[in-house]
Design a binder for these strands. Structure first.
Length: 838
RNA sequence: GCCCGGGUGGCGAAACGGGUAGACGCGAGGGACUUAAAAUCCCUUUCCCGCAAGGGAGUCCCAGUUCGAGUCUGGGCCCGGGCACCA
């Protein structure tokens, strides 16, 4: 006879109505403030951050929910472990995406975004996240972007924001500048249009000043390895040398009459050097020509009269080409300038060419070409019949390995030695690099340098939907930053926000807005009409969450000290370089400015995987997009959450399959029934208690490792044992299981917890204590191998030694028949395996 | 081309620092309970040979290390993602 702890309606045997209990608990959490974090008083603060979403009109994507659920489980688990957990959420609502959508549907983004946010918040609340909504923020809120502008001013004050005319990627469709990061294979990452080259005055942040630190800190950050690797590649450190090649018979007339250098009226001239960057100074004896980028400032100076026309024509052609097709096309083109420079190693004159395979934005915009040992240079040399000199010999003594004639560039660097390199012949590559740079340095021809691939961050956007850059141009004073007391520079509500082809923002058409008086002299001023990149909005949002109640500071010092850096950050790897790098940079700047006491914003970062469907990325065009609402309606949020976490390893993602959800729902149904029907009479079965404690251990280990799928599997196993043979659970067998499931299925856990007679939230009830004694097995199953082949298993008391196991094994005829004769060797792994070698 | 992931049943996936490959779930087949269904519970489900007991093979491929390899080493193939004329 089982004694039911609680009466359930006779008509409703299962009694589990997810819709009803989820509504009930969401309401109750709100009434009781269950998810509110006491930021000032909480013991052991734990900041569980997730990447905030862009509130699209389509609503929440399963990918969002997958990400947030994973973070929520982690956060709830930390809370159950006794931390005061802060789990805020906000919206990254500025940017081209919203603006384009608004244009498409003919709505103003200022009207559209709040609606989208309302819809998102509704969907997110249904998912049962432990979010403290009192700290919600939106980057489009003037109370927020006031501080984004403040941030710009901090960088400006520190000389880290500057304006320059630069070749930029221009999307002719979106009519805006794109960061290099937003150009994918020459096309706009957003609309796919072919990106063009334009020259515009742009604001930049000097992130390159921080390249070394951004790279070095990666060595100690507790981040997903894949993310760190992506950042390393992006920063792209190259160790090499800068080498000066003196241009022959050409001197630069400085045109300065100076007393210091001699008789007055004398014109001083200096020899003209072309500086190149190379990572292979060891091959300098094989440098047979130089190549300058077409935009290189010295091109005109080195061009001879005979070549002037050809050079000018080539420069015109490459300027007309967009940055993209220039990079996409690998066909070599180029023109000889007519001049020669001296190779400082050989003393020989070598021709100077210009070619667009050399990029002005990398290194010095000039290279020494070593066709024998570089693919591109080889191709170019073949095409224009330039000399190819071999200076690195292969590892063997075969004649072919040191043949001066090469059919293809020789790129090997391991186990090779120099040849044709004077006193350096015979040296290995690494040694030669050092020795040659030292030798050249002694004569003032070279110095070792570190070069980064990373470029300064262009933050100007010629668009409407963003925070205006807080700068005023005054006719008298020039560039004047908006005083902090005048912030925010509010984005005006403009009916016509459509971008045009002028290369300026739509704000440049709003004279009433941009016409201002100069804050410095009171004269005529004009506002900067560009807005800043959305990545600036998201580069500091984590600092704002704890301080959303403060209007006078971007982030309160005490709260920041208490809650930051972020303990755990979870997000998609699509932001591995951009957002994560920019927010690290901004944090470092704030650290250097004395605003925060740490230079890395996220102690721990984990990238979650991606949810695909039927093996393909979800997309509207494929028609395989999952709308979370439907699934929550049909199965309940608890089932949906748990299912998302069960379909694969969290850090890898998985394949969404409708069929499998039923299995997770069945699991929750069975848990429900077992708890509702649980008895208090008698005592729990020790075998079940053992399984329970093994489960407590497994879940406690798996959740912090984000191994959610295996944690769920373990709980399923546990419930299978509890219910084996239609047995009725004892209350003590299921009560801890309710606590274990709570991070995954919070509503049903609360309901069951309440029905078990508890008054407080299950999230304030702590975590079940694991007892190793209760989890221990009395018998160990030992696998018995003979010569490494599995021949059977034997049961021995736990902790048995080799002798006991061997005796048991030999007593088994099925095993003994293979193990004939005296064993040559016996391998014993306690509690696991016995291998008899005969 | 370079840098990250990853290749395991019909399917999604497990497997602690080498130690019973396929836990858990889906799907499929059979059974118990039921007037019936749902739910629940029990059994089977990598492949091959065999009535069975049992035996053999098996984690993308080829070598190697080891008493023992999904796991480690070398080489190769395939898939996903990122970067790419970066000197």
């Amino acid at each position: 006879m089982t004694e039911s702890i609680h009466q359930t309606p006779a008509q409703e045997p299962a009694g589990y109505d997810p819709a009803a209990i989820e509504r009930k608990w969401q309401d109750r959490w709100e009434e009781r403030g269950t998810n509110h974090t006491d930021l000032a008083a909480g013991a052991r603060p734990f900041y569980a951050l997730m990447m905030f979403p862009y509130p699209s009109a389509e609503g929440l994507h399963v990918g969002n929910l997958f990400a947030f659920t994973g973070n929520d489980i982690y956060g709830r688990f930390q809370r159950l472990q006794g931390h005061t957990v802060f789990e805020p959420l906000g919206f990254d609502a500025f940017g081209i995406h919203s603006e384009n959508f608004a244009l498409k549907v003919g709505t103003h983004p200022a009207d559209l975004i709040p609606r989208n946010i309302d819809n998102f918040r509704r969907q997110l609340k249904r998912a049962g996240l432990m979010v403290d909504w009192r700290h919600e923020l939106s980057t489009t809120d003037p109370a927020y972007y006031k501080w984004t502008q403040w941030l710009f001013l901090q960088l400006y004050k520190r000389g880290l924001a500057y304006k320059r005319r630069a070749a930029v990627n221009w999307c002719p469709n979106d009519k805006t500048v794109l960061a290099n990061e937003q150009v994918i294979a020459g096309e706009c990452e957003r609309c796919g249009a072919k990106v063009e080259q334009r020259f515009l005055e742009q604001w930049f942040f000097r992130i390159t000043d921080y390249a070394g630190r951004l790279l070095d800190n990666l060595s100690w950050l507790d981040w997903s390895e894949s993310t760190k690797q992506a950042q390393r590649n992006w920063i792209g450190r190259s160790d090499g040398a800068e080498v000066a090649f003196r241009v022959q018979d050409l001197e630069e007339f400085t045109g300065t009459a100076t007393i210091a250098s001699g008789a007055s009226g004398e014109f001083v001239s200096e020899p003209l050097d072309i500086r190149v960057f190379t990572t292979r100074p060891d091959t300098i004896f094989g440098a047979t020509y130089l190549v300058l980028a077409p935009e290189h400032p010295l091109v005109d100076a080195v061009t001879t009269d005979e070549q002037r026309e050809a050079i000018a024509e080539y420069k015109r052609a490459s300027a007309a080409q967009d940055l993209v097709s220039r990079k996409v096309s690998k066909e070599k083109t180029g023109v000889f300038t007519g001049s020669f420079a001296v190779n400082p190693a050989t003393g020989h004159p070598i021709p100077i060419w210009i070619a667009d395979y050399v990029l002005m934005e990398y290194g010095t915009g000039a290279i020494m070409a070593v066709p024998g040992h570089d693919e591109r240079d080889f191709e170019f040399a073949k095409l224009f019949d330039l000399p190819i000199v071999r200076v690195v010999a292969g590892p063997s003594t075969q004649p072919a390995d040191s043949s001066p004639v090469l059919d293809e560039p020789f790129l090997e660097t391991d186990n090779v030695r120099l040849m044709n390199s004077g006193e350096f012949n015979g040296l290995g590559v690494m040694t030669a690099k050092q020795r040659i740079v030292d030798w050249l340095a002694q004569h003032g021809h070279a110095r070792g340098v570190v070069n980064y691939r990373l470029h300064d961050w262009c933050i100007s956007r010629q668009r409407y939907w963003g925070p205006p850059i807080p700068i005023i141009y005054c006719e008298k004073c020039g560039t004047v930053p908006v005083p902090e007391s005048d912030l925010p520079v509010e984005l005006p509500y403009v009916e016509d926000f459509k971008p045009d082809d002028t290369g300026t923002s739509p704000l440049a058409r709003v004279e009433s807005w941009y016409r201002v008086t100069c804050p410095s002299c009171g004269g005529v001023g004009r506002r900067e009409t560009d807005v800043s990149d959305t990545f600036l909005d998201s580069a500091w949002y984590f600092l704002r969450y704890p301080s959303t109640d403060y209007d006078d500071v971007p982030f309160d010092r005490e709260l920041t000290k208490r809650w930051l850096p972020v303990n755990s950050y979870i997000g998609g790897n699509e932001h591995a370089v951009l957002h994560l790098l920019y927010s690290r940079f901004i944090t470092m700047v704030l650290h250097d400015a004395g605003q925060v006491g740490f230079e890395e914003p996220y102690r721990k970062f984990r990238a979650h995987g991606m949810i695909i469907r039927e093996g393909a990325k979800m997309s509207k065009s494929r028609g395989n997009v999952v709308n979370p609402d439907e699934y929550v309606d049909r199965w309940g949020a608890d089932t949906f959450r748990t299912y998302l976490m069960f379909l694969g390893p969290y850090e890898e993602g998985g394949d969404f399959r409708d069929q499998s959800i039923a299995g997770v729902r069945r699991f929750l149904d069975r848990l429900w029934s077992s708890v509702i029907e649980a008895t208090t009479s008698g005592s729990p079965d020790p075998l079940v208690v053992r399984k329970l404690h093994q489960t407590i251990r497994k879940v406690s280990d798996d959740v912090p490792a984000l191994s959610y799928n295996t944690a769920i599997a373990a709980m399923m196993e546990c419930i299978n044992v509890i219910r084996r043979g239609e047995r009725t659970a004892h209350r003590a067998e299921v009560e801890p299981l309710v606590q274990l499931i709570a991070p995954f299925a919070p509503h049903v856990a609360e309901e069951l917890w309440e029905r078990l007679g508890h008054r407080e939230s299950v999230f304030d009830a702590g975590w079940p204590v694991f007892d190793p004694a209760l989890a221990a097995e009395d018998l160990a199953t030992i696998v018995v191998q003979v010569n490494g082949k599995m021949r059977g298993t034997v049961q021995v008391p736990s902790g048995s030694g080799q002798d006991v196991a061997l005796e048991a094994a030999m007593a088994d005829s099925g095993i003994a028949k293979f193990a004939v004769g005296t064993p040559k060797k016996v391998i014993f792994v306690p509690g696991r395996l016995l291998n008899i070698v005969v």
